[in-house]
Design a protein around this nucleic acid. Structure first.
Length: 151
DNA sequence: GCCAACGTTGGC
DNA sequence: GCCAACGTTGGC
């Protein structure tokens, strides 16, 4: 089992939005970065766990945990001309972008960046590296356990 | 609003 | 294949 961190701008899609979904599950669409796509498509497995992180907002931080509940499949929004995620170069025969379904496991207290940075085991966490912009990053088991312990 | 970091694009 | 220009991300 692998661990991940999923970023979302809460003004676009927050953990409360996920909590309101049927079965607290949503398709994690809109990923348009190749490295993040490769994680989605090639490395995410059903049963993997993820932290839900609020980014680009007044109170950035980890706000909950989620579960990957199925294998990757083509992201419908790439085919939708009206979507901001539409990609004219993608086709159903040759999809470029993928998503998985994600289910909310639990909302947690918010763990802000300063608190994460204070944890020694998180010294090398991708999220905390300077210039990090990836919306999906792998989390090691040690990092996962460290954060679960302070939640 | 600022700015560092980084990905993408496109001319050559 | 190089690299400058440009756009986006995201914390502060």
């Amino acid at each position: 089992m692998n661990y991940w961190l999923l970023k979302s701008d809460p003004s676009t899609y927050s953990i409360d939005d996920l909590a309101r979904e049927k079965n607290r599950t949503t398709a994690w669409t809109g990923v348009r970065n190749y490295q993040a796509r490769n994680f989605l498509r090639d490395e995410m497995r059903p049963g993997d766990r993820a932290f839900f992180y609020h980014s680009s907002c007044e109170e950035p931080g980890i706000v909950g945990t989620a579960e990957v509940c199925g294998p990757a499949y083509p992201d419908e929004t790439q085919f939708d001309r009206k979507s901001k995620y539409y990609d004219a170069d993608a086709s159903r025969d040759n999809p470029r972008w993928f998503n998985v379904d994600v289910r909310l496991v639990e909302k947690t207290r918010r763990v802000e960046l300063a608190e994460l940075r204070a944890q020694k085991p998180l010294r090398n966490m991708q999220l905390l590296k300077r210039g990090n912009r990836l919306s999906i990053t792998p989390v090691t088991a040690a990092e996962w356990n460290c954060i679960m312990d302070i939640l």
